[in-house]
Every structure is written in structure tokens, then in C-alpha cells.
């Protein structure tokens, strides 16, 4: 179940005089415009998640490692958000590095843009994409410890960072076993290639979906984050699992979305990243654009577990 903050319109009233009509028109037209402008400015400055002290807070970025200006601007927004929403870690959805992957590239495409977050001890937990060198799993600040896929726990949330670029039998068996043994309230998987996507460039990775989805369903995965398509998309629950595509933290394919009935919300006009907060049995999320605009937000209630 998803809930949203909604802006109910005020009930309209009948104008009884020209002056009253003028005032009414002003109120109807001007006030919403001014309010929207104020809200936009305010949202760029503020974070409206519950922001509870004991929750699991993290950010999500995908397809970020360009080293170009938009990546730096998204990183600035992340830093700005961190000052009011102190997330502990960032999940990276792959394609963390584009082009050259020499030591100076790691500085320009990772260490410099996220310098403020790294200085604030924010941990980056990477998964790899098809543009990443496999050896990048050994790059210290990605916290992969040389593993293509790995798992970790934050309070009541079990995270699985997977390698969808080489989804072999051994990894599938490992995912199954790890999820089966997990006792946490939430099971969150993230990897590069989206099982569901309505962006026209790549779209859904159906070959992967047929292999991974049965394991996710069997073991009660709650939420899946992916990148690869350079847009933001929130899918309606697919067989009970929530899917997010957030692959625009550096790259962008403007106008690439072709929303379908699967699409709950999408944004393809600018770069974006996500803020996520797991508080008890609720997961709050926001997608924020390069300019700081909240382009989507909501809350997910944890689904019922499948019978064991």
C-alpha cells in the first residue's frame, strides 16, 4: 500500500461583487503559483521524510560516474540533503564509472563529487554495472571487499548487492540461500539491470527477470532498486514486490520514459537520486532532481511474508 502527500484544493466560492470576484480570481490564480514557487524553493532546502532518529536512512544513485557537471550537481543536492537527513550510506546501482577507470578517474568521478559525504563518513555500498570494470569490486570506498555480490544488514533491513551483469547459477543459489536465511523485517535487493522498466532505450531485462523473480517471490523480497535506464521510475508492485529504477544520478536520457500501466511515477527531464528511510514496517522514499525538486515521494508498508 502506498500513501502520498496530497494537496487538496480549497472549495470554490461564489463571487458576489466585482471586487470580491477580483479577490477570488487573485486567490485562485496567484496564490497557487506563489505557493508552488515557495514550495519548490523550500523543498530544495528541506527533506520531508519522517526523519526519525532510530530509522535506517540511505540514498540511492545509479549510472552516476560520468565526472561531468550534472553528476557534481546531483552530489551537491545529496550533500545538502544529508545536512538535514543524515543518511548513513549510499547504495550504488551500477555504472559507477564511465569511460576511463584509471586512479585519477576514481578521483574525478567519485572521490571529488562525493567528497563532502565521504568526509562525513557516509559509506558507499556499490554494485557493478556493465560499464564498470570487474576489478572495481576491490576499490576500497565501494565497500565490496572484492566481491561481485555481497550482503549486509542495517538494523532491521537485509541488503543484497548483486551482480546482474554476470548472473550465474552460483550467484542465484547464493541469493536464494541468503534470502532464505534472512530474519530481518525487510529484504532489499539492488543491482544494475532492471527486471521491470518502461524506459524505451533498454526496458525490462526479461531474461534476468525469469531467473531472479521466482527467488525473490519465494523468499519474500520487499523492494528492488536498479539503474541502467537513465531515468527515474517507480513501478506499481509487481507480484507484490516494489521496483524502483534510479539510473540518472549522472547520465540522463531525457524523454526516454514510455509509461505503461506498470508505471506508478516517473521522471525523465533531469538527473535524479533517491532518499530512503526505513522506519519500522514503513519505508519512506523521495526522488529528488538535480535542481532539488522532489519529483516523487511516498511510503511503502512492508508486505506480508510468504508462508514458509
Amino acid at each position: 500500500m502506498i500513501g502520498f502527500w496530497t494537496n487538496d484544493e480549497a472549495a470554490s466560492s461564489q463571487a458576489s461583487s466585482p471586487l470580491a470576484y477580483l479577490m477570488h480570481t487573485l486567490r485562485r490564480c496567484l496564490i497557487p503559483v506563489l505557493t508552488a514557487a515557495a514550495c519548490t524553493a523550500l523543498l530544495a532546502q528541506s527533506v520531508a521524510l519522517p526523519n526519525r532518529p532510530d530509522s535506517v536512512k540511505f540514498a540511492a544513485i545509479g549510472d552516476n560516474g560520468t565526472g561531468d557537471r550534472p553528476q557534481y550537481e546531483v552530489a551537491q543536492q545529496m550533500t545538502s540533503a544529508h545536512s538535514r537527513f543524515p543518511f548513513d550510506f549510499v547504495i550504488m546501482l551500477g555504472d559507477n564509472m564511465y569511460g576511463g577507470q584509471q586512479p585519477n578517474d576514481f578521483v574525478r568521478k567519485f572521490e571529488q563529487p562525493y567528497a563532502a559525504l565521504l568526509a562525513a563518513n557516509v559509506k558507499f555500498q556499490a554494485s557493478l554495472g556493465n560499464h564498470d570494470r570487474p576489478e572495481n569490486a576491490s576499490y576500497g570506498p565501494f565497500n565490496m571487499n572484492g566481491q561481485r555480490y555481497y550482503t549486509y544488514v542495517r538494523k532491521n533491513v537485509r541488503f543484497l548487492a548483486l551482480d546482474s551483469t554476470l548472473m550465474d547459477r552460483k550467484q542465484l543459489d547464493w541469493i536464494d540461500a541468503t534470502l532464505r536465511d534472512s530474519r530481518e523485517d525487510w529484504k532489499v535487493c539492488y543491482f544494475h539491470h532492471p527486471l521491470y522498466s518502461n524506459a524505451s532505450r533498454h526496458g525490462s531485462s526479461i531474461d534476468l527477470r525469469l531467473q531472479m523473480e521466482p527467488i525473490f517471490l519465494k523468499n519474500g523480497v520487499n523492494v528492488v532498486f536498479s539503474g541502467h535506464d537513465h531515468v527515474y521510475e517507480r513501478l506499481r508492485p509487481q507480484k507484490g514486490i516494489y521496483y524502483f529504477v534510479s539510473g540518472a544520478a549522472g547520465q540522463l536520457r531525457r524523454g526516454n520514459m514510455e509509461p505503461s500501466e506498470q508505471t506508478a511515477a516517473s521522471f525523465d527531464q533531469d538527473q535524479s537520486f533517491m532518499l530512503v528511510e526505513v522506519a519500522g514496517l514503513e519505508m519512506f522514499f523521495q526522488s529528488i532532481s538535480r535542481t532539488g525538486r522532489v519529483v516523487d515521494s511516498g511510503v511503502i508498508r512492508r508486505q506480508q511474508r510468504p508462508p514458509s
Binding site: 556493465n130 546482474s164 551483469t165 554476470l166 550465474d168 539491470h193 531485462s205 531474461d207 531467473q211
Partner: peptide, 9 residues
């Protein structure tokens, strides 16, 4: 050599 997925394709 390669499991199903993008690299295989």
C-alpha cells in the same frame, strides 16, 4: 562462458 544477460546477448 556467459550466463544469460546483457553480456551474453
Amino acid at each position: 562462458l556467459l550466463p544469460p544477460g546483457q553480456l551474453h546477448s
